[in-house]
């Protein structure tokens, strides 16, 4: 029963956890998880992120992250970082301060950008700052 909150936003080995975690395990986390494939289509979207954005997963899964789901991340601060990592075949693990527009309200968050060569999915983790 204590699978919930087993991993923290800042955990160094979080990518390993994400890769083997079930959807239920992702839904138990207290921060947002968005996973996308090589073509930047969203393939994982956990309960925390769904509730914060006010969108159910079926409106999001299979859609392009940077154009349909989160256009606010489509700039050099985020989208470009993933593109660069993909092009160079390098790993990306960086945490930045950002403002998301959850339900049209500006909300201060920490975003953790994760990618590594050989992994099927790349992740954006969203932690609300209080």
């Amino acid at each position: 029963m204590n699978t919930e909150h087993t991993v923290s936003f800042a955990d160094a080995a979080i990518l390993d956890f994400l890769e083997r975690a079930s959807d239920a395990e992702l839904d138990g986390l207290d921060f947002g998880v968005i996973g996308m494939d090589d073509a930047s289509h969203v393939t994982r979207y956990n309960r925390f992120e769904s509730a914060a954005a006010g969108l159910s997963p079926d409106r999001v899964l299979g859609h392009a992250l940077f154009t349909v789901v989160a256009p606010c991340m489509n700039n050099f601060m985020i989208a470009q970082r993933f593109e660069d990592a993909q092009q160079d075949g390098s790993a990306l693990d960086d945490t930045i301060n950002y403002v998301l527009t959850l339900r049209m309200r500006p909300v201060k968050v920490k975003l953790r950008l994760l990618a590594r060569p050989g992994s099927a999915l790349r992740y954006v983790l969203v932690h609300r700052q209080t």
Partner: peptide, 10 residues
């Protein structure tokens, strides 16, 4: 504020 606005302003 909507997302595209945040994308341009951030």
């Amino acid at each position: 504020v909507n997302p595209l606005c945040a994308q341009l302003l951030m």
